[in-house]
Design a protein around this nucleic acid. Structure first.
Length: 859
RNA sequence: GGGCCUGUGGCGGAAUGGUAGACGCUGCGGACUUAAAAUCCGUUGUCCUUAGGACGUGGGGGUUCAAGUCCCCCCAGGCCCACCA
């Protein structure tokens, strides 16, 4: 084929993008007569260039958007920019620019790239979170939360990232290191703003049950993160003092197995009881120095320090047990003190063994005698019968718990308590490029006063310098000096900015009403569009972003906003995009476009040096195993890039990017163009009226077509895009090998091609639009509806099934679709191959499932 | 340590309990071409010399006329959480 006949990607894709934009094809308004469908892709951070992960994400959301639009929904598919955050500041420091300028330049670049993908996005609703008109509204929400008691300020020990000079949320500390910088986190005491997410712990947990269109793994991760546990809190008196210590346990059945009490190193009582003891300071220091790296946690030796005091078992005052301080008890969970039951808790067991503490058993596993504990090597944490436990002897674990609870309440020494692992969300960040926390502190009395609504937004100053470490807002010469809105006295602005998860917790609401100057969104828009019907993004946000957003809806609701409890009715988490890694002989990473394969061996393109092809891993800049989607789009076109990324792997699994894969997709795009052009004489000869008679093969083709229509829709709805693509390929194979002989054939062929084009439109919209036009239509395919299928045409007139003898397939037979069981059985038994397989033996049983299988049981 | 997920050809992956390997990539053979590219046709799970068989979905048991699919026990890999009392 000459090049002039080949599908011209670039001009065609640009042409249709322009037409879609001019005709505002994807701009939507609240249309009460139409059912809405809100498709949302996680908004990108404007790093400067899109990466393949973005392409995957937005290809998926685009398929959903275009499919739902074709199905008649009023589809909202917006896009915006998660534009606040640290990288802009780092870039500003390095390049001596302003974070704002850097960010907006990146947005412009990335928008151009996204436009070249041909996405069905309503760009009129574009939002950038760094726009004061955006963060103005969240400052209002912050104040609403404050007035409702959902935002508060307290001095607390924080996770301090020494590299980024900022506070990190617990969720942002991974293995004791900052999630982004990787630096070991330090502990500092600061005044911090918090959101009371714990207020909603139970509701957030319960809400998970309603999220039936979320992946199970995300729901489980959220459940674990919230970490509800039921237990009791009870008090131990400390002998010879006025002090008592509260412990929390879920195993109160083992109360008579307590042989010591352990306090966290930073428990207030630890200092009170032991600070005057020799070695205390050293001990505390060694507690704080361990437990940062992953390895340290793995191997962390349990270390303890004896306070010398004794605690009295509240249910058995005759028993006194030592009170120790140990590094394995966490101040942040429960009460920061635990009762040591070494016989039945592995951590306590290790600790007791090391420090020679008693290990009294109180639960006997079923079928064992007390001999079981004679040479105990590890704690027994299973069920069994209570022993050595006074009034609960002989009970099982569950009954014993109940009995202890009752007794405890009766004696007024404890209470049944449910606790959560979840902590309040610390939102303060000591950074410049974030949403300013809208409060001032009056100098005269330090009163914390919200900035009045008519003075919002509190805007970031633009004349900042990065010459010193720390927060540029804090050392700005004028910005923070203001007056108290109530008294007019001198006041200091809060110089903390918000965690950037704040912006992403509600951006999907801003899309609904982006031009609303007075509120972040109107109740009417929210009531029409919310909740998001299909949210799509990476699984790395399974806990943080998704949990914060869920919290936000409830907090907003309680502040009088009209929002649903659950923001995202449907969630899909896509897999990562991976690529093979390459390294030269010195172990330096090489980009894929620096290497080539020759005679089965990898070598550098320049120089032909040996290259080691390594593992296939997530694309990352540090390993250089990245491809630039823009190069791909420029070379092969957006349609081919989109098709490849949708076709090779199930979307929830990892996808390996390969050159062969993208070339295959590109070939298929060209093939679709070519076969349509080649069939055009037949396609354009068709009249508007459906012929009465069809040849057998035309009927067969129509069956193919209608099956494909049904199947592709089902696959798209189930996010099986790879299967949808396979069906489209099958249909195209059937069409391209079809020879039209009469008018009926031509009609069936045209029906097939039109369906084909509509079916691949969600994946390859430019090509689809081009071919639609080339078939003589003067409408936009984008405005066309999804083809419908005829149930009667789905079933072929005859069907080939396997015939088994004793479960092994020995032959296949072709039977009419409406054949009776008896007819099928006769056919099967009389088949020569079956006769041979039966070999004269008796047929004991015959199973006939028409359209499926025949199985003859012989002996 | 806990939780979740995944194991199917050379590769990515298909299979409401019913002909395992759809669809594609790669490879091989052929057509077209002076040649190449592109394209098209055929072929491609393994083994047995073929007709035709045997084997085959990580391993071992079980249920069933029939198991990749359901049940039990192992093994391997991945992800998440993790001294959470």
């Amino acid at each position: 084929m000459s090049t002039t006949e080949r599908y011209n990607i670039k001009s065609t894709e640009e042409k249709w993008q322009k037409i879609w934009a001019e005709k505002k094809c994807f701009e939507v308004t609240e249309d009460k007569d139409k059912e809405k469908f809100y498709v949302l892709a996680m908004l990108p951070y404007p790093s400067g260039r899109i990466h393949v992960g973005h392409v995957r994400n937005y290809s998926l959301s685009d398929v959903v958007a275009r499919y739902r639009k074709a199905c008649g929904y009023n589809v909202l598919n917006p896009m915006g920019w998660d534009a606040l955050g640290l990288p802009a500041e780092n870039a500003a420091m390095q390049n001596n620019t302003l974070p704002k300028d850097w960010t907006y330049e990146n947005i412009a670049q990335m928008k151009e790239q996204l436009l070249s993908m041909g996405l069905a996005i309503d760009w009129s609703r574009e939002v950038a979170t760094c726009d004061p008109d955006y963060y103005k509204h969240e400052q209002k929400m912050f104040i609403d939360f404050y007035k409702k008691g959902l935002a508060y300020r307290k001095e607390s020990v924080v996770n301090w990232d020494p590299v980024e000079d900022t506070v990190l949320a617990n969720e942002q500390v991974v293995d004791g290191k900052g999630w982004r910088s990787g630096a070991p986190v330090e502990r500092r005491k600061l005044h911090q703003w918090f959101f009371k997410i714990t207020e909603y712990a139970d509701e957030l947990l319960e809400g998970i049950k309603t999220l039936d269109r979320w992946p199970d793994k995300v729901r489980i991760m959220q459940e674990n993160w919230i970490g509800k546990s039921k237990g009791v809190q009870l008090s131990f008196d400390i002998k010879d003092t006025e002090e008592t210590v509260d412990v929390y346990t879920t195993r109160h059945d083992t109360i008579f197995g307590v042989s010591f009490i352990v306090l966290a190193a930073d428990h207030p009582l630890s200092e009170k009881l032991a600070s005057d003891k020799d070695g205390y300071d050293d001990f505390i220091q060694s507690c704080q120095s361990t437990g940062t790296s992953e390895e340290a946690i793995e191997k962390a030796e349990k270390i303890g320090f004896d306070t010398g005091y004794k605690a009295i078992n509240p249910l058995n005052p005759d028993v006194e047990v030592p009170v120790l301080i140990a590094n394995y008890v966490l101040m942040g969970y429960g009460t920061g003190a635990v009762m040591g039951v070494p016989a039945h808790d592995q951590r306590d067991f290790e600790f007791a063994t090391k420090y020679n503490l008693d290990i009294p058993p109180v639960i006997l596993p079923e079928g064992e005698s007390e001999e079981f504990f004679a040479n105990q090597k590890e704690a027994y944490s299973g069920d069994g019968t209570l022993i050595n436990s006074y009034f609960i002897d002989g009970m099982n674990v569950e009954d014993a718990k109940k009995a202890v609870e009752e007794k405890m309440i009766e004696m007024n020494i404890g209470e049944v308590k449910t606790i959560f692992r979840l902590r309040d969300w610390g939102v303060s960040r000591q950074r410049y490029w974030g949403c300013p926390v809208p409060f001032v502190y009056r100098e005269s009395d330090g009163a914390c006063i919200p900035v009045p609504e008519d003075q919002l937004p509190v805007e970031l100053p633009e004349d900042i310098d990065y010459d010193a470490p720390g927060n540029p807002l804090d050392r700005h010469p004028t910005w923070k000096y203001t007056t108290c809105p109530e008294t007019g006295e001198p006041a200091i602005r809060e110089t903390d900015t918000c965690d950037t998860f704040f912006e992403s917790s509600w951006y999907f609401l801003r899309y609904l009403d982006p031009n609303n100057k007075t509120r972040g969104f109107s109740d009417e828009a929210s009531q029409y569009w919310m909740a998001v019907d299909q949210y799509i993004g990476g699984v790395e946000h399974a806990v943080l972003h998704l949990l914060y957003s869920r919290f936000f809806m409830r907090a907003l609701r309680d502040c009088g906003y009209a929002v649903p409890d659950e923001p995202f009715a449907g969630l899909f988490t896509q897999g990562m995009v991976t690529h093979q890694t390459f390294a030269d002989k010195d172990g330096n990473w090489l980009f894929p476009n620096q290497v080539m394969q020759k005679d089965g061996k990898w070598q550098t393109i320049e120089g032909g040096d040996d290259v080691t092809a390594g593992a296939v891993t997530k694309m990352s800049k540090s390993k250089k195993n990245v491809v630039d989607p823009q190069d791909i789009i420029d070379t092969y076109g957006a349609d081919a890039a989109r098709l490849f990324i949708l076709s090779d792997s199930p979307p929830d699994r990892d996808l390996e990017w390969t050159d062969a894969g993208i070339e295959g997709a590109w070939r298929f795009a060209n093939k679709l163009y070519r076969i349509t052009e080649e069939a055009k004489d037949n396609l354009c000869a068709v009249g508007s009226k459906q012929p009465i008679e069809f040849s057998e093969k035309a009927k067969d083709l129509r069956s193919h077509t209608h099956k494909a229509i049904k199947g592709v829709a089902e696959d798209i709805e189930a996010f099986h895009m790879n299967k949808a693509v396979a069906r489209i390929r099958e249909l195209s194979n059937a069409l391209s090998s079809f020879e039209a002989k009469d008018a009926g054939d031509q009609w069936a062929l045209r029906e097939g091609y039109e369906a084909l084009i509509k079916l691949f439109n969600p994946m390859m919209p430019h090509l689809a639009e081009e071919l639609w036009q080339s078939l003589g239509h003067d409408t936009l395919l984008t405005d066309e509806s999804w083809p419908s299928y005829d149930e009667a045409l789905l079933a072929a007139e005859s069907v080939t099934i396997g015939v088994q003898v004793n479960g092994k397939v020995r032959a296949t037979i072709l039977h009419a679709a409406d054949a009776s069981k008896e007819e099928i059985e006769t056919m099967a038994v009389n088949d020569p191959a079956i006769q041979k397989a039966i070999d004269g033996k008796n047929i004991k049983k015959v199973i006939v499932v028409p359209g499926r299988i025949v199985n003859l049981v012989v002996a």
